[in-house]
Amino acid sequence: MIALLLRDLRLAFRAGGGFGLGLAFFLIVVVLVPFGVGPETELLSRIAPGILWVASLLAALLSLDRIFALDFEDGSLSLLATSPLPMEGAAMMKALAHWITTGLPLTLAAPALGFLLSLAPEAYAYLLVSLLLGTPALSMIGTFGAALTVGIRRGGLLLSLLVLPLYVPTLIFGAEAVRRGADGLDPTGALMLMAGITAGCFALLPFATAAVLRINLR
């Protein structure tokens, strides 16, 4: 299983792998918001938690269709299906690789962008923790969505339509935790609930993803 993870990471970091695109997208979305809503520091500071969360969610969405599409086209997926690697494990490794190449850099970049949006100083720690806990769930849910649409040509738009509603709970708890942190309230509840969602996603969605992949390979 580690071999699959390492291969996916290597592919992502090589030329044409698309690493960094999500990060650049995140930056651009966050930079565009003040042009849309005006430069008042107070307003920006108030909406910063939500914007950072929505932007990182969209950036994670951007690279989802690469998770399985390339492996499906070049036949790797069929070969993996007949290998000793269980599909469930492959699904989890795929999600993990997506998180390391997308979710983790987004998490690390978010405080810098929070600075641009004058995020309240108390909220930085919670921003970091909430993204760290929440972005793995985004990757795992997205991997499930990618598996559902892998057989569909130009499935990118459909993938967004399927995955975005599934992102709602994670987004709510994530942004809420940061907002509570910014207001000086206790965000532990939101963080715990989000950690629960992430744990649940990694416990259950690999099975759904593997089932869906097998159906699509038939």
């Binding site: 071999a3 699959l4 290597r10 044409g16 070049d74 069929s78």
Partner: peptide, 24 residues
């Protein structure tokens, strides 16, 4: 199973491609 779609990654070298399947 092997077919015309042989799962070769264009961004990996020949050795890396083979090493991956050996590891799996």
């Amino acid at each position: 199973y092997a077919s015309h779609a042989d799962g070769i990654k264009t961004a990996l070298t020949v050795t890396e491609n083979l090493k991956f399947w050996a590891d799996v």
